[in-house]
């Protein structure tokens, strides 16, 4: 790529945006759970997988988590379900509940299936049913039919996509009030993808369950999430309502800036790059003040404005985080 990193905006400026309070969802179910993670920290040797992570999810809200590989997404999920014990911080819910009740009301769909691979799909479902006090056989049967589960196939013989489908059945058959999805749609075909989105939309409409989803498929987050949080080195570094992320991120392609021009340090500037003779600025919020400042300082510049999709809006934020290292 013909792109060179030119400078990074706002190295130390406060990047945390949006309200710290989770936004209220419009139709939380009566059993929807509020989840609060406060100051979560967890070290593996020298690596800080979580480093003071704060995140509140309102009852019935769906939050999407975005971050580079190793940002701490999976460790966050594993901490919430109790597979890891953070060195510091608290995980709390409203209503308050015991760990046993919490697990009975939470559904986790991991990115890789963790269950005995000598079982066949049907045995795995029956095994989870026996362990899960709130297992709903009718709903499970419907899920299995929607997702096309073949009960007789051994787990070790399942394709990546079939494993992902089975993970949904194992994770959602008890109609959880809190749904945790860690990169759940890897390797599924287009038809299954649509079926899963339909299932998730139904669970949100009917039950109004609370949801946390990590995905690199940013279009899926645009479909599902009320709010997107950006994770970097174990902390939430920015959060933004999904619609605002799309309407409030623009690229300005600026021609005619003097050589050696440096972008101003501004919280509006997400990323600045030089490509051939143009400067490409990714801007959050209102672009008008940025345009005006550029034109008044350099009257001969020519500026083109590009509206961004959620993919570029997220990817440029992740690039900026990368540049800060």
């Amino acid at each position: 790529m013909n792109t060179t990193e030119m400078s990074h905006a706002s190295r130390d400026s406060a990047v945390l945006r949006g309200s710290d309070q989770a936004s209220a969802s419009q139709n939380p179910g009566k059993d929807a759970i509020e989840l609060r993670c406060t100051g979560l920290s967890l070290r593996f040797g020298k690596v800080r997988a979580l480093d003071g992570l704060d995140l509140t999810i309102a009852p019935g809200e769906c939050v999407g988590v975005v971050g580079r590989n190793g940002a701490g997404k999976s460790t966050l999920f594993r901490s919430i379900i109790g597979a890891e014990t953070p060195d510091a911080g608290r995980i709390e819910t409203t209503p308050a509940m015991s760990r046993v009740e919490f697990l009975a009301r939470t559904g986790f769909v991991p990115d890789t299936l963790a269950i005995y691979d000598w079982m066949n799909a049907g045995q795995a479902i029956d095994f989870v049913a026996a362990l899960q006090p709130r297992f709903d056989p009718a709903w499970s049967a419907e899920l299995q039919s929607i997702l096309g589960i073949v009960r007789a196939v051994k787990i070790r013989d399942l394709s990546r996509g079939m494993q992902a489908r089975l993970a949904f059945v194992l994770g959602l058959s008890h109609r959880p009030d809190l749904v945790l999805l860690d990169e759940p749609l890897l390797g599924v075909d287009a038809v299954t993808h649509d079926a899963v989105l339909e299932v998730l939309a139904r669970m949100r409409s009917v039950q109004g369950c609370t949801m946390l989803i990590a995905s690199h498929q940013l279009g899926d987050l645009a479909r599902l999430a009320d709010r997107v949080v950006f994770l970097d080195r174990g902390r939430v570094v920015e959060q933004c309502e999904t619609d605002e992320l799309v309407t409030g991120t623009h690229r300005l392609i600026v021609h005619g800036l003097p050589l050696g021009w440096r972008p101003p340090v501004s919280n509006a500037l997400i990323l600045a790059r030089r490509q051939e003779s143009a400067c490409i600025l990714t801007v959050r919020g209102d672009v008008a003040p940025v345009r005006e400042a550029l034109v008044s300082a350099h009257p001969s510049v020519r500026i083109e404005e590009v509206a961004l999709s959620i993919h570029e809006a997220c990817a440029d934020r992740l690039r900026a985080l990368e540049d800060r290292t």
Partner: peptide, 18 residues
């Protein structure tokens, strides 16, 4: 209904409400 639209399009029901 909101539910029917959300399911058919595979999107967040809150988005349909909006």
């Amino acid at each position: 209904s909101v539910r029917a639209i959300a399911e058919e399009l595979g999107v967040n029901p809150n988005t349909v409400h909006k």
